[in-house]
């Protein structure tokens, strides 16, 4: 139902945009500070979709001795909030027809928004798993099987009905990495798990004392634009 609503919304926008004549500028975020994502129920994903996506992000970035995986780091929450917002609706993109298949050099030409594409891919993955694994959902499969399926989708050997599975994988991987490494204010990178993994100090914004300290480990912990874990609960 939600998928259909999102699709209808985007076609309505298309029809509006196709009218010729003066139009006000396309809104840009301009001077608005980013709104902090608050933990809480998923806004775009259904519970079943969220379970599948949490399982996917936890294989793309698995928990291990180096630190949290994608699930604990909030990658699924990040993706949910992005899909519910302007990015998920392709709000700033040129979406006037005709939509033609071009060469790879000409870039993406799909009229489908990230929200629609991500949802369709999750549905196709679930359909495939329930057929192939006697009714079991992707999230219920052992990690080794999940990894194998994701690898096959990535390299194009596993097709999913009705969707471009490779493009879907690329979208999920891109958004998972965004969620792992973006500022925690967007709901991912919780406890700065992504930044701590690699040693990125975040929004420190002043390294004048460190420029010429060649090869020396940076001493301060990471900080985000909303502060840092420990300053307040929302970390």
């Amino acid at each position: 139902m939600r998928g259909r609503r999102a699709w209808l919304t985007s076609t309505a926008l298309l029809a509006l945009a196709a009218c010729a004549g003066p139009n006000p500028p396309v809104p840009q975020a301009g001077s608005t500070p980013p709104q902090a994502v608050l933990p809480g129920p998923y806004q775009f994903l259904t519970l079943a979709e969220a379970a599948a996506l949490e399982a996917v992000v936890d294989r793309l970035i698995p928990p291990d001795e180096l630190g949290p995986g994608g699930r604990e780091a909030g990658c699924a929450l990040f993706i949910d909030r992005q899909l519910a917002g302007p990015f998920g609706r392709s709000e700033s993109l040129y979406l006037l027809p005709p939509f033609l298949d071009g060469t790879p050099e000409q870039g993406p030409q799909s009229p489908l928004t990230p929200a629609v594409r991500l949802r369709a891919g999750l549905a196709a993955l679930e359909t495939y798993c329930r057929a192939a694994f006697v009714g079991r959902a992707f999230a219920a499969l052992p990690p080794t099987v999940q990894d194998r399926l994701l690898s096959e989708i990535e390299d194009g050997t596993l097709a999913l009905a009705g969707v471009n599975a490779r493009a879907w994988f690329d979208l999920v991987l891109q958004m998972t990495m965004e969620g792992f490494f973006a500022d925690p204010i967007y709901g991912g990178n919780r406890q700065m798990a992504g930044w701590r993994l690699i040693g990125f100090p975040g929004a420190r914004y002043d390294y004048r004392d460190w420029v010429e300290r060649h090869g020396v480990a940076y001493a301060l912990p990471p900080v985000g634009i909303g502060g840092r874990p420990g300053w307040h609960d929302a970390g």
């Binding site: 840009q28 975020a29 500070p33 980013p34 990015f87 700033s92 965004e178 490494f181 973006a182 500022d183 204010i185 967007y186 975040g202 929004a203 914004y205 634009i225």
Partner: peptide, 15 residues
């Protein structure tokens, strides 16, 4: 400086 260092917003989403 309070919200300039935001990679997602500026470098990825091209604000």
């Amino acid at each position: 400086p309070g919200f300039a260092p935001d990679e997602l917003r500026y470098a990825v989403r091209h604000d």
